[in-house]
């Protein structure tokens, strides 16, 4: 590679197509123009070379704790997924009576929706429950687990973490909700009783469809949003740990380690690699239309 700026190479020092350098004193100053013929070689490099280049003008310095607060949304979605899976495992093993989930679900949904639409929703879901239960009878359980895991990962991947508005969510968010509902259907079809299926589907609707809306509106309603984000995160983490504890201690360890990684280590890495950032701007950039 040839050096960018230091020390011109000896063979390049001879000017290309121009007067010898001796007359430098009398010559008019070089100007960055093409329409006049200047008494300088075509490969002349003026002092003003790259003067208009700007580096890192739009880069804002990230504060570690700000980034930590931003990661709360990721932790929340992660916890929501873990809670959902834990609830499924409890229902599947029969350690929790399905009536509990049913009641909890009904209350929350009724609170969120108007009474009429809530009634419609319940009837629909209740009617669909037997179908859902038998839906994947012919498919091996291994395929179900695999697909459910992939769909839950897709939910985590495409969730709209960024935009704060509850009306203009970005496209992949719908993909995220659909993936989560698909995995809910898959898991629900593995359950034994109609009540369990109904309860799990309710929980899925709440956690993946309605809860993000609630979080967004809370964030919009209360500034600074850090308070609500922190509050929700703490509540969700406690819930998730409480649900995971009876299942296995290893799962609790993994879960808390993941939360710690996302909340503390990832922001640390992001902030520490900021110093390598080199953003170059100059007159060659495509102009942005201003108003």
């Amino acid at each position: 590679m040839e050096p960018v700026s230091p020390g011109p190479l000896p063979e390049a020092a001879s000017p290309v197509g121009g007067a010898p350098a001796a007359a430098l004193g009398q010559r008019p100053r070089w100007r960055k123009l093409l329409y006049i013929r200047q008494d300088y070689p075509d490969n002349y490099v003026d002092k003003s070379f790259l003067k208009l280049m700007k580096r890192n003008v739009n880069v804002r310095q990230l504060d570690y704790w700000d980034v930590v607060c931003e990661t709360f949304r990721v932790s929340q979605q992660l916890s929501v997924t873990v809670i959902f899976v834990a609830a499924f495992l409890h229902l599947d093993s029969g350690s929790v009576p399905s009536v509990t989930g049913l009641i909890a679900g009904s209350c929350a949904i009724s609170a969120c929706l108007a009474i009429t639409s809530a009634a419609l929703f319940f009837t629909m879901l209740l009617g669909l429950t037997p179908i859902l239960k038998n839906l994947t009878e012919n498919i091996s359980s291994d395929s179900i687990w695999f697909m459910a895991i992939v769909m839950l990962l897709a939910n985590l991947l495409f969730h709209d973490y960024g935009s704060g508005s509850s009306t203009h969510t970005r496209f992949p968010d719908s993909l995220s909700i659909n993936a989560a509902m698909f995995s809910a259907v898959l898991l629900a079809s593995q359950l034994e009783s109609n009540n369990d299926v109904f309860g799990l589907m309710l929980l899925a609707v709440q956690l993946f469809a309605l809860f993000p809306i609630l979080r967004r509106s809370m964030r919009a309603w209360h500034h600074p949003s850090v308070f609500w984000d922190g509050f929700f995160t703490v509540v969700l983490v406690i819930f998730a740990v409480a649900l995971l504890l009876p299942i296995s201690h290893a799962s609790v360890t993994f879960y808390t380690a993941a939360i710690a990684f996302v909340t503390f280590f990832c922001p640390y890495m992001l902030v520490s690699i900021q110093k390598y950032k080199s953003e170059i701007r100059g007159p060659w950039d495509e102009a942005v239309i201003g108003h």
């Binding site: 960018v4 390049a12 093409l34």
Partner: peptide, 10 residues
């Protein structure tokens, strides 16, 4: 990443 002396403007 060129040496500017190797670049001519025509």
């Amino acid at each position: 990443s060129l040496n500017p002396l190797h670049v001519s403007v025509i």
